[in-house]
Design a protein around this nucleic acid. Structure first.
Lengths: 175, 175
DNA sequence: TAGCCTTATGCAACAAGTTGCATTTGCCGG
DNA sequence: CCGGCAAATGCAACTTGTTGCATAAGGCTA
């Protein structure tokens, strides 16, 4: 249900096509939401069907048409409703932790490889975050509250990832 | 796909019924995996159908029968295969972060309430973790490596939650 | 003593997410 | 000049997860 809300928010900030949104998810929203293009296209179409979005088809010569979506009044209302009600807590799912509960059966070589590889993924994520911060929040002091809020989310993403890195390095060292 | 693996691991540690597993999820595995009873019963039945689990039905007087599951040889093999292959990264989904990207439309009162409520949930989680630690890992020094591994996961869960708490308190204070 | 919680299981319908495949053109590199 | 990638969309089948409901007995509490 939240994918819908995330789409309402991104399109409220700026109208765009499914493809546009995909790029935003990959770039500035990497720490907020990720979804496949199929999910986006299908959900956008449903939301149009439900009257939350209006769609303008821009024909392009020699390329598939661009379908630019933007919020309708009903879409804005749906967004306000979603914002006003508290989120339900999402269930915990940590498959990596599960492997730790089968420590004896987890082959040492696979273990080392997986953990060092995981550490690399975390480091890459930190690099991505740093790039986003440089591009969008180069001067945190001069941000308005509305700009400062997204910056907070990025900061938390960084801190959480740093915590993960510290932990995984301790575990690697100990084994 | 990981639910299966998590079930293989918990049942490998100790055979049990769907209900047993649900209790373990609520207690000692709260930071690892959560699932509804329907998911468990359905998945256990499928795994039996696939030959990964054997099931012994213990009739009880005046109560529904208990179905005790345990791994078959095929189940142990499936577990080893899963352990050996690296996990695929799971997509990021942070609906709370999304709200921060609609800061202006997020009513101040709802915002305050949601954030303080969230903070309370985090604190509760820390309490749960502390209880698990007392019960299962009261003396970390004397743990074998296989016992120490699950303890590591708990420690990370605690540190991540602490990071969340610090962050949410900063945000509350700033607004 | 009526009503809810716990034990213990399950079906059915639906919503959400994944995987595999398909289209069309232009551009860029080897 | 051939192959793959980027732009831009989509269908169909499948797996996972959620929601609502159902059963049936005993124990606890107001």
């Amino acid at each position: 249900m939240s994918l819908r809300a995330v789409l309402l928010i991104t399109l409220q900030r700026e109208p765009g096509t499914g493809y546009d949104i995909l790029q935003r998810f990959k770039a500035g929203l990497a720490h907020v939401w990720q979804a496949s293009h199929q999910q986006l296209y299908r959900e956008l179409d449903r939301m149009r069907g439900d009257g939350l979005l209006a769609c303008e088809t821009l024909p392009q010569t020699e390329r598939p048409d661009r379908k630019v979506y933007q919020l309708t009044e009903a879409g804005r209302q749906a967004l306000d409703i979603w914002l006003a009600e508290p989120l339900s807590t999402s269930p915990v799912r940590q498959p990596l932790f599960a492997k730790f509960f089968a420590w004896e059966r987890w082959p040492e070589e696979a273990r080392r490889e997986e953990l060092t590889d995981f550490r690399k993924q975390l480091k890459d994520r930190l690099t991505t975050y740093a790039a986003i911060e440089r591009e969008w929040f180069s001067d945190p002091q001069s941000l308005t509250p509305a700009q400062r809020a997204p910056w907070h989310t990025l900061r938390l993403g960084q801190r959480l990832t740093e915590t993960w890195v510290e932990w995984v390095e301790e575990v690697i060292e100990e084994n």
